[in-house]
């Protein structure tokens, strides 16, 4: 590529863990930087620019200001990539979406709540066109690298649409259920190389649900393994409340 793509990085409502995760690319960071010019990144620099090729956006949209800003980002970029569960699904923030918004505001800000307008936490795709997604909480590094490499080569990235179980079994991990825990791997989109189960943890579903996921079946599995119906639903809602409860994506 003659001119390096100009990249801008933005954060909305989230913990900023995805951004830090980018800085964690110890071995690959220099390779990444060699391929692009980073022109705007609040976390690391002061510059503001009017145009860029690729915008990486972290965080969900949960205030009127977010909505305004994401439209601006969309206008200025050619390719918009959502990074992490908040930007892609609404994330944990979206748990508030199934509670009365005024109660949430009061709980969060107390007496000062009138200073902080709030909206249901939405994924970017609910408001603007998103070209590509990097899922995960924090965003999955290997998926980011694959997407990044594809984009600098001018290609479409591969999007897996099968369960984490497939990747977990490829590594011959002992099943998390076998350890007496419950796991959302069976309905969660792969692409993380079964990161959590490989370290003895259960899958929280942070990468979102596979297409046409059998939610009733998954709830039944959770109940079979000792959760109440209510707990089972809540486990699934942790990252996927917007998708499960029909909030617009």
């Amino acid at each position: 590529m003659a001119n390096k793509p100009r990249v801008a990085i933005f954060d909305f409502t989230g913990c900023e863990g995805c951004e830090l995760n980018k800085l964690n690319f110890e071995n690959e960071l220099l390779d990444i930087l060699a391929h692009v010019d980073i022109v705007e990144w609040r976390e690391a620099m002061d510059d503001r620019v009017d145009e860029y090729d690729i915008a990486f956006v972290e965080g969900s949209l949960s205030t009127p200001d977010c909505i305004e800003r994401i439209h601006e980002v969309r206008r200025k970029c050619k390719v918009l990539v959502s990074l992490g569960s908040c930007a892609t699904l609404g994330g944990i923030n979206a748990m508030k979406n199934i509670q009365p918004i005024e109660e949430v505001r009061e709980e969060g800000y107390g007496e000062d709540k009138y200073l902080f307008p709030t909206l249901p936490a939405l994924p970017l795709s609910a408001v603007v066109k998103v070209d590509y997604e990097v899922r995960g909480c924090p965003m999955t590094q290997i998926e980011f690298l694959k997407l990044f490499t594809a984009l600098v080569r001018g290609q479409e990235p591969v999007k897996p649409d099968y369960a984490v179980c497939v990747e977990c079994k490829l590594k011959e991990n002992e099943c998390v259920y076998e350890k007496g825990m419950i796991c959302l791997g069976p309905v969660t989109v792969a692409g993380c190389d079964a990161h959590c189960p490989s370290f003895g943890q259960y899958c929280t579903g942070c990468r979102g649900l596979v297409t046409d996921a059998n939610i009733a079946g998954m709830e039944e599995i959770l109940v079979k393994h000792g959760l109440s119906v209510d707990e089972a639903r809540k486990r699934l809602q942790l990252y996927n409340v917007n998708q499960l409860e029909g909030v617009q994506r």
């Binding site: 369960a163 179980c165 079994k169 490829l170 069976p186 596979v210 059998n214 079946g217």
Partner: peptide, 11 residues
Amino acid sequence: KECVGCGTCNM
């Protein structure tokens, strides 16, 4: 109805 299509049985 019970199966969630995770692919474990194949793997």
